Simulated assay, not measured.
Amino acid sequence: MTPSSRPCASRPLPAGQPLAVVQAHEGELPAGAAEELAEARGRALVLGSGARDAAEALRGVAVRSWYAPTGGRAGPGAVLPGLVDALGEVPLVICPASPDGRDLAPRLAAACGRALLAGAIRVRLDDARGVVAAELERWEGRVIVDAEAPAPAVATLLPGARTVAPAPGGVGAGEPVPVALPVAPAHDARSLGVAAARPEARELGEAARVVGGGAGLVPRGTADSHARRTFDLLARVAARLDASAGATRVATDAGWIDPDRQIGITGAMIGPELYIAFGISGASQHTGGLGSPRHIISVNTDPSCPMTRRADLGLVTDARALLEALDRRLAEEAHAP
């Protein structure tokens, strides 16, 4: 289905190249911002409070970047008219699939009469054919849909979907460039602040640390109530490590932990700095969702299982016993004077 062709007015940003549009809060970028930038061929426009500092943080992977300090309380309705004007000749706008990005992207697509490709794990501009091609995640990752739309278009990119290479030469091409983006009065929701999520319940794709649990945490014949307590323990340890709690499909299918905690091809795609796998053998369905964690620690009684072979550190021991010992140690440290 082709949207009505209602071109946006053209202004300051260069034509002909994809552009990532990222909302910053107090200089902090949403998870996946570097991936979004890489998917946009290294070009980004950063909005919000602390926009310049956030744009500077992207210089290692940016080719060119711009920033518009629109303030922390300007909602999407307030910045939309200026964006419509500024992005007129940009053939592909990529927003992160963060709360801000999921709010802004459909408004921008509607205002410009563009197609919206939401929930992409890959998106690219085919210059020769004048179309945008994407792979879209549906049914909580259980289905991947190939889609195309005529350029110009808008897309949202899920975090953890791709790896990020440094910009040529290791740094971006010069200082981020300021853009005068007007903020118009608008009847819209206003952001009063951003509350941090509980670490263990943070979206898996956005977490820098993830603690995962598998069937190896639960001996055969264990009652479901006992198994659920084990995964409650996993979540508690994850919280004390400022990590998100995840699990294999075996654990979520058994009801030991919520389905949105599943990591893998049919679950969440992750790419954390640290992944600790308790009792996870490393089946391809699970490891297919790991991306490229910087460090992996495997806790398993099998020294030859795929997860331990892949790990930077393999601890060959009973996973549940080590989890309980770690919980006690972290509790002692939390209560130490």
Rank of each mutant, 00 (worst) to 15 (best):
Gly113Thr: 06
Gly27Cys: 12
Tyr67Glu: 03
Arg138Lys: 09
Thr70Asp: 01
Glu137Trp: 06
Arg107Gln: 04
Cys95Thr: 06
Leu125Pro: 00
Gly141Glu: 01
Leu136Lys: 03
Leu80Cys: 03
Gly50Ala: 00
Gly82Gln: 01
Leu136Ala: 05
Pro69Thr: 07
Pro96Asp: 13
Arg142Ser: 13
Pro76Lys: 01
Ser49Ile: 07
Gly27Arg: 06
Gly88Phe: 02
Tyr67Leu: 03
Gly130Lys: 09
Ile94Asn: 00
Leu29Lys: 05
Thr70Pro: 07
Pro91Leu: 04
Ala55Arg: 03
Glu56Pro: 04
Ala118Phe: 07
Glu26Pro: 11
Arg138Cys: 11
Arg52Ser: 12
Val132His: 05
Gly72Cys: 10
Ala97Val: 12
Leu80Thr: 13
Glu28Ile: 14
Glu26Asp: 15
Ala109Trp: 01
Asp127Arg: 14
Glu135Pro: 11
Ala155Leu: 01
Val46Trp: 01
Gly72Ile: 10
Ser49Trp: 08
Arg52Met: 10
Val132Met: 01
Leu116Ala: 07
Ala57Trp: 10
Leu157His: 03
Arg52Gly: 13
Pro99Trp: 06
Leu158Ala: 09
Val143Met: 13
Leu136His: 04
Glu89Ser: 15
Gly88Arg: 01
Ala151His: 08
Ala151Leu: 08
Leu157Trp: 05
Gly113Ala: 06
Ala147Cys: 03
Trp139Asp: 15
Val46Lys: 03
Pro76Ala: 14
Ala147Val: 11
Arg129Phe: 09
Arg129Glu: 15
Asp103Arg: 10
Ala155Cys: 04
Pro99Met: 07
Ala120Lys: 02
Gly75Pro: 14
Ala151Gln: 07
Cys95Leu: 15
Glu56Arg: 08
Ala62His: 01
Thr70Tyr: 00
Pro96Gln: 11
Ala40Lys: 03
Glu137Asp: 12
Ser49Val: 08
Tyr67Gln: 08
Ala134His: 01
Pro91Ser: 10
Leu117Pro: 04
Val61Phe: 11
Pro152Phe: 00
Glu35Ser: 00
Leu104Met: 04
Leu157Arg: 00
Asp146Glu: 15
Arg122Ile: 11
Val132Thr: 02
Ala44Trp: 07
Gly42Gln: 04
Ala74Met: 11
Ala74Lys: 11
Ala151Glu: 12
Val63Cys: 08
Ile144Pro: 06
Pro69Ile: 10
Val143Asn: 08
Arg52Ala: 14
Ala78Ile: 04
Ile94Trp: 03
Ala78Gln: 12
Asp100Ser: 14
Glu36Ala: 14
Arg52Trp: 04
Arg59Gln: 15
Glu39Asp: 14
Pro106Asp: 10
Ala111Cys: 13
Gly50Met: 13
Glu89Asn: 12
Asp146Arg: 13
Leu45Ile: 09
Ala31Asn: 02
Pro152Ala: 02
Arg102Ser: 13
Ala78Met: 14
Ala111Tyr: 12
Val154Gly: 00
Ser49Met: 07
Pro30Leu: 10
Leu80Tyr: 07
Tyr67Lys: 05
Leu45Val: 09
Ala128Gln: 15
Val93Ala: 01
Ala74Gly: 09
Gly48Thr: 06
Cys95Tyr: 10
Leu125Cys: 00
Asp53Ala: 15
Leu80Pro: 05
Thr70Met: 01
Ala68Arg: 10
Gly48Glu: 02
Ala149Val: 08
Leu117Val: 13
Arg107Gly: 00
Gly119Trp: 09
Ala109Lys: 02
Ile121Gly: 10
Ala38Leu: 11
Asp53Cys: 08
Trp139Gln: 12
Ala38Cys: 14
